[in-house]
């Protein structure tokens, strides 16, 4: 079965898959479908970006982040506030949103990435909640629980993008660009350093890789991309509020990566597509579709722990002996302590 999935780095396949996904994304636009379908397609493209960026942290570098929704939110709020209060154009506020989010991400990374895995999970989870609570309780800047309505749409050469089809293509281009960027990073010296860290931090450091530096780098780039996605989202949906970027959002993105596959380019894309389609396709089941959603997730985790098209699962052992590494004691734990203290 699926021998090609198990082969590492078959370069000729990934562009093919990306092409196929592009085609799928382009279908609603080509068919001139209903606004409803096009909106769903737009959300798919956005979530492809979000899941792919989280995959940089989780799938490539082997760290955890349960606060990705918060970075998405920081990007969205930054761009919205600048656009409304200062009347700046989207093409200025969007990059600023990305850069600010990256700075926040780098700061959080510098503070938390020396933590061992379990503590990093809690650190990022707490950070996500802090951001949400901050947005709720800073009305002079964020309008608190009322949210920010009336975010202006972007314009290209004085021509405002108002129809959903136009917006769909804008976000599609953005998504392709971001996936391409991640693809190139992955297949490079930087990507190899990330994967090396995921596989074995001690071996990576004795190969001359600055473990902490590359971790912060992965975290920062992932946050930059999430922040950009947030800006695109805010100007697309025109109304944002704190509850859109809470814990649920972080978990949704995480689930997309886990379901689609960690550590590959195509995995998070598949995950994002499936998890946007399912709630829409099974609307007739009302709340029961969440049961379906849960059952699917459990099935995948049991049958294919690395996700549908992933390289290595979240809890996969590096080699037979290293299963349940958190229970390790003695010498190697000592090594990691020392490593962590550096």
């Amino acid at each position: 079965m699926n021998t090609f999935m198990a082969m590492p780095l078959k370069r000729n396949q990934t562009p093919f898959w990306i092409g196929a996904v592009v085609l799928v994304l382009a279908v609603p636009g080509l068919l001139g479908g209903s606004d409803y379908l096009i909106q769903i397609a737009t959300m798919m493209a956005l979530y492809v970006v979000l899941a792919s960026s989280l995959n940089l942290i989780i799938g490539f570098t082997g760290m955890y982040s349960l606060g990705h929704g918060a970075f998405y939110g920081i990007g969205a709020y930054t761009s919205a506030i600048l656009a409304i209060n200062l009347d700046w154009t989207f093409w200025v506020t969007m990059p600023i949103a990305g850069i600010l989010t990256a700075l926040v991400g780098a700061f959080l990374g510098l503070a938390t990435l020396r933590l061992r895995q379990t503590f990093l999970v809690f650190g990022t989870l707490a950070f996500g909640e802090i951001v949400r609570i901050l947005i709720m309780n800073w009305p002079s800047l964020t309008r608190g629980p009322m949210g920010i309505p009336g975010i202006p749409p972007p314009s290209i050469l004085g021509f405002e993008l108002v129809s959903s089809t136009q917006y769909y293509y804008l976000i599609l281009v953005f998504a392709i660009l971001m996936v391409f960027l991640i693809f190139r990073l992955y297949h490079s010296r930087v990507g190899r350093a990330w994967v090396a860290i995921r596989e074995d931090e001690i071996a990576a450091s004795s190969m001359g890789i600055s473990v902490f530096g590359y971790k912060v780098l992965a975290f920062t780039i992932a946050c930059l991309i999430a922040g950009l996605a947030g800006a695109f989202y805010a100007h697309f949906i025109t109304f944002i509020s704190a509850d859109q970027f809470g814990m649920n959002e972080s978990f949704l993105i995480l689930t997309m990566v886990a379901l689609g596959g960690t550590g590959s380019i195509i995995g998070p894309i598949i995950g994002a597509l499936i998890l946007i389609i399912i709630p829409e396709a099974f609307r007739f089941l009302a709340e029961y579709r969440m049961v379906l959603y849960g059952a699917l997730l459990i099935l995948v985790i049991v049958v294919k722990p690395e996700g549908l098209a992933g390289v290595k699962g979240l809890f996969a052992p590096a080699s037979g002996a290293r299963r349940f590494s958190f229970l390790r004691s003695g010498f190697s734990a000592e090594c990691e302590k020392v490593e962590g203290a550096k």
């Binding site: 780095l9 990073l185 010296r189 090396a196 990576a204 190969m207 390289v311 290595k312 590096a318």
Partner: peptide, 26 residues
């Protein structure tokens, strides 16, 4: 070893020190 990395990429990773290409180069 870097278990979920190809044999070739394992060895290429060993050359990390000798090169400088970074995010922009990639």
């Amino acid at each position: 070893l870097f278990a979920y990395m190809s044999v070739l990429d394992n060895v290429i990773t060993g050359t990390h020190n000798h090169y400088k290409s970074f995010v922009w180069g990639a």
